Amino acid sequence: ITIHVNGVTYHFDNPEEAEKFAQKMAKTYQLKMEIHNGEFHME
């Protein structure tokens, strides 16, 4: 699972971890999250 946050790329093997991380980042930084081709993009 690949997550892009403001141009920084994070890779996770565990989908649950990826989702937790994505939600935490979105909440902490008030980010808008989109999913493209199974990759999370946040800005």
Rank of each mutant, 00 (worst) to 15 (best):
E16F: 11
N6Q: 11
M33F: 10
H41V: 09
G7H: 09
A26E: 09
F21K: 00
H41T: 05
M25Q: 02
A18Q: 01
N6R: 12
G38V: 02
V5W: 10
E19N: 12
V8G: 05
E16V: 10
M33I: 14
K24V: 12
F40L: 13
H36A: 04
I1L: 06
I1G: 02
H4S: 03
G7F: 14
K32T: 14
H11T: 08
M42Q: 03
G7A: 06
G7I: 15
M25A: 02
F21C: 13
P15E: 06
G7K: 07
F12S: 00
H41A: 02
N6E: 11
K20T: 10
N37L: 08
H4A: 04
E34F: 15
T2S: 08
H4P: 01
T9C: 15
E17K: 09
Y29A: 08
V5D: 01
Y29D: 14
T2R: 13
H11Q: 07
V8Q: 08
Y29F: 06
H36R: 13
L31G: 07
M25I: 06
N14H: 06
T9I: 10
V8A: 09
M25F: 03
F40C: 15
A18N: 00
I3L: 05
M33T: 03
E43R: 14
N37A: 05
G7W: 13
K32L: 14
I35G: 04
K27I: 12
K20P: 01
N6T: 07
T28Y: 15
I3Y: 05
E34H: 13
H41Q: 03
F40Q: 04
V8M: 10
K24Y: 15
K20L: 11
K32M: 13
E16P: 03
T28S: 05
H41S: 05
V8F: 12
A18G: 07
N37T: 04
E16S: 09
D13G: 09
K32F: 13
T9S: 10
E34K: 10
H36F: 10
E16I: 10
D13W: 11
V5F: 11
M42F: 11
Y10I: 04
V5G: 02
T9Y: 05
H41F: 14
A22T: 04
A26D: 06
E34W: 14
L31M: 07
E16K: 10
V5E: 01
T9M: 11
E43Q: 11
K24G: 03
D13S: 12
K20F: 08
F12T: 00
G38T: 03
A26T: 03
Y10S: 00
L31W: 05
N37E: 05
M33L: 13
G7Q: 06
F12M: 01
A18H: 01
Y10C: 14
N14A: 06
H11N: 06
G38R: 02
Q23I: 12
E16N: 07
Y29E: 14
A18L: 04
F40S: 03
I1V: 07
A18T: 01
K24I: 13
K27P: 11
F21Q: 00
M42A: 05
F40G: 02
F12E: 00
E17W: 07
F40I: 14
G38H: 05
Q30V: 03
G7S: 08
T2L: 11
I1F: 08
M42P: 04
G38A: 04
G7P: 00
T2K: 12
Y10T: 01
E34I: 14
I3W: 05
T9A: 13
K24W: 15
M33S: 02
K20I: 10
Y10F: 11
V8D: 07
H11G: 02
M42T: 03
P15A: 09
F12K: 00
I1D: 01
I3P: 00
M33R: 00
Q23V: 11
F12P: 00
K27H: 06
A22P: 00
H11M: 07
M33A: 02
P15Y: 12
T28K: 14
E19H: 13
Y29K: 04
N37S: 05
Q30R: 04
I35Y: 11
E34A: 07
H41Y: 14
P15V: 11
P15D: 05
M42N: 02
Y29G: 14
Y10D: 00
H4Y: 12
Q23L: 11
Q23M: 12
T9W: 05
E34M: 12
V5A: 06
I1N: 02
K24N: 06
K27T: 07
I35V: 07
A18Y: 02
K20G: 04
L31T: 04
H36L: 11
E39G: 04
P15S: 09
A22H: 02
F21A: 01
H11A: 07
H11K: 09
Q30M: 05
G7M: 11
M42E: 02
H11I: 08
P15K: 10
M33Y: 09
Y10W: 08
E19V: 13
Q30T: 03
E43I: 15
N6W: 15
G38Y: 05
E17F: 06
H11P: 01
Y10G: 00
N14W: 08
L31D: 12
N37M: 07
T2Y: 13
A26G: 06
F40K: 03
K27M: 11
E17D: 08
M42R: 03
N37V: 06
K20D: 07
F21L: 01
Q23T: 11
Q23A: 11
Y29R: 03
Q23D: 07
E39P: 04
F40W: 15
E39C: 14
F12H: 00
L31E: 12
A26K: 07
H36P: 02
I35D: 03
N14P: 01
A18R: 02
E19P: 00
E19Y: 14
F12Q: 00
D13P: 10
M42K: 03
H4Q: 04
I1W: 12
G7N: 08
D13F: 10
G38M: 04
H36S: 05
F21R: 00
H36M: 06
K27L: 12
N14C: 10
E17N: 06
N14G: 06
K32Q: 13
H4C: 15
I3G: 02
T9F: 06
A22G: 01
I1C: 14
M42W: 06
E17H: 06
I3N: 00
K32V: 14
T2F: 13
Q23G: 02
T2C: 14
Q23P: 00
E17V: 07
V8R: 13
E39R: 04
A22D: 00
T2V: 09
Y29I: 04
H41C: 14
L31H: 07
K27S: 07
E19T: 12
P15M: 13
M42D: 03
E19M: 14
E34G: 04
A22R: 08
D13H: 11
N37R: 03
I35H: 03
K20V: 10
P15I: 12
E39T: 05
T9N: 05
M25V: 04
E34L: 12
A18V: 04
E43F: 15
V5H: 03
K24R: 12
G7R: 07
T2N: 10
E39D: 06
M25W: 08
K32S: 13
T9E: 05
F40A: 04
Q30I: 03
A18S: 02
E16G: 07
M33K: 00
M33Q: 01
H41R: 05
G7L: 12
E17L: 10
K24S: 06
A22Y: 07
E39M: 06
F40D: 02
M33C: 15
T28R: 14
G38L: 06
V8N: 09
P15R: 12
Q23H: 07
K20R: 10
T28E: 15
Y10K: 01
E43L: 14
T2P: 03
M25H: 01
Q30H: 13
L31V: 12
I35T: 04
F12C: 08
E17M: 08
A26V: 04
T28I: 14
E19R: 13
L31I: 09
V5Q: 01
M25N: 01
H11F: 10
Y29W: 04
N14T: 08
T2E: 04
L31C: 15
D13M: 10
M33E: 03
M33G: 02
L31Y: 09
H36V: 12
E16A: 09
K20N: 07
H36C: 14
I3M: 03
M42C: 13
P15L: 12
Y10P: 00
M33P: 01
V8L: 10
N14E: 05
H41I: 08
I1Q: 04
H41L: 06
Y29N: 12
I3Q: 00
E34C: 15
T28P: 01
A26I: 12
K24E: 13
I3K: 01
I1K: 05
V5Y: 06
E17R: 08
Q30P: 14
I35S: 04
V5M: 06
N6K: 13
D13V: 11
H41M: 05
A26W: 14
H4D: 02
N6C: 15
H41P: 02
Y29M: 06
V5N: 01
K20W: 07
V8E: 08
T28N: 11
K27D: 13
F40P: 03
Q23Y: 12
E43C: 15
K27A: 12
H36G: 02
V5R: 01
N37Q: 05
E16D: 11
Y10H: 04
N6L: 15
N37W: 10
